[in-house]
Design a protein around this nucleic acid. Sequence first.
DNA 1: CCGAATCCGAGGTGATACTG
DNA 2: CAGTATCACCTCGGATTCGG
Lengths: 128, 128
Amino acid sequence: MSRSTTDVPAQVAGADACTVREVLDRVGGKWSIGVIVEASRGPVRFTELERAVEGISRRMLTLTLRNLERDGLLTRTVHPTVPPKVEYVATPMARELYDALLTLTTWADRHRGDIAAARHRYDEARAD
Amino acid sequence: MSRSTTDVPAQVAGADACTVREVLDRVGGKWSIGVIVEASRGPVRFTELERAVEGISRRMLTLTLRNLERDGLLTRTVHPTVPPKVEYVATPMARELYDALLTLTTWADRHRGDIAAARHRYDEARAD
DNA sequence: CCGAATCCGAGGTGATACTG
DNA sequence: CAGTATCACCTCGGATTCGG
């Protein structure tokens, strides 16, 4: 974390934007983050996720799980027991991603008030 | 950047996930990042953005601009000339955000190969 | 318990044409 | 130049139901 925006040459800016888009396309889904967070804390079962990720439907949980597994962010383990038991856990790569997202969290915490104020000001000005 | 994922207590994880969602809802749009990148390099006009952000339609540019302005990430300046001239520029807050996104870029660069490999493996396994 | 398949409505997205 | 308006599409997400 040494470079600042102003240090970035104009040329690489576009490429960076593209790269960010890749990540966002992957974890930008409505539920991906929530699932990653839960799976980062250790192996978790399908039904546990269904309850832990507030508001998610069974369909979306399945789809999200598949996409994350496909990208190597989640490991799916089937225990051949009766009844069947399937556990999901975040891969090291996903944990690193989560750490990276922490940077965004910090930003959001710092500027939450500013954003709310800006919105209020904007809406206020339009109300006239 | 001192804390690692494993250091984060379970309780705050959910809250962090929520915070990340806030940011993602704001800049997760298909075009937001591209516009922020362009506007971070200095004042830029509407038509310049239309050409700079590859593939964006006039409508989506307008909507993206409005949202970013509303959140205080962009400053809109109208020069009362003929013909009209409107310039957009990223606020300091937006530049900080861009710096935060650089962390994600780094992650993506490090793991791009891993993800591609994981996908290939996954698709391969399903082809059987 | 875990997941797939189908149906269906809501909202996001783009092409085009028009205005101050 | 800098938008706004309208329409048509089309993907996403939810509810429900069925299978292993």
